[in-house]
Amino acid sequence: MKLTEKIIEGLLWLSAAITILVTVGIIWVLLSESVAFFSEVSVIEFFTDTEWTPLFDVKRFGILPLLAGTFLTTAIAIAVALPIGLTIAIYLNEYADASFRAVIKPLLEILATIPTVVYGFFALTVVTPFLQQLIPGLAGFNALSAGMVMGIMIIPMISSLSEDAISAVPKSLREAAYGMGATRLQTAFGVMVPAASSGILVSIILAISRAVGETMIVAIAAGQQPRLTLNPLVPVETMTTYIVQVSLGDVPHGSLEYRTIFAVGITLFIFTFALNNISFWIKKKYQEKYD
């Protein structure tokens, strides 16, 4: 009887401990392959060279073009998702009534459940042709359309996390503002949003992290041309797209080309890891403030 209990506890512990193994595995895999990569390519070249052509005859290993592509699509996505998502959060909290909220929130969540490959299709076949009518010089693959569609996907993330943050602000603050004759708008932007600012910040950081790691939309609609540019109208390549591109090809295992995806992978990992941990840190500080 006692023994079975111990065995079961051991098994449960094991399944929890596997998550540690996953983390260790990720770091080990990324590190071991990229250490091999950086023994052939200098870190300085990796971070300063302005061209990324590992699959060409003349190989250049500068990750800046991939970073630029990632930055560009992420920035566009946030530029779309932040104003819309935050406005939705404020509107649902300060203006809408409970029954409206109850209907709208699950509908918005649908946006987050749609597979990203589907968004990619949408960006390529609907949004890009539409934008081409407005912007004549727009290329068939471009950062703009991929970034915008990614922004739409991220809206529910920002709106629901921000809404949680705003609704966690004590009611008394809102009532105090109303009591002084403030309009709903003044209350929202003068009192509620500042009071919830750290929670809103967390939602933005997590959204950025999500956009940086997003793969299929950009792989489908943004192109596969590493280019050091901030022009949203031309094809670019993100870090994630590059990994997909190599995976689809026939790169022999153990070659330098093969290792590039781990060097890119560890760069991507460090970015998202840092963003996530900044958000945890802010969240923790902010929770302490309210207790």
């Binding site: 998550t19 996953v22 990720i26 997590l206 997003e214 995806i261 992978g265 990992f269 890891f273 963003l275």
Partner: peptide, 16 residues
């Protein structure tokens, strides 16, 4: 650790 894993991009899991 679990909170961190939840934020790791899916493509990294592919590399793993």
């Amino acid at each position: 650790n679990i909170a961190n894993l939840a934020g790791v991009p899916s493509i990294i899991y592919g590399l793993l």
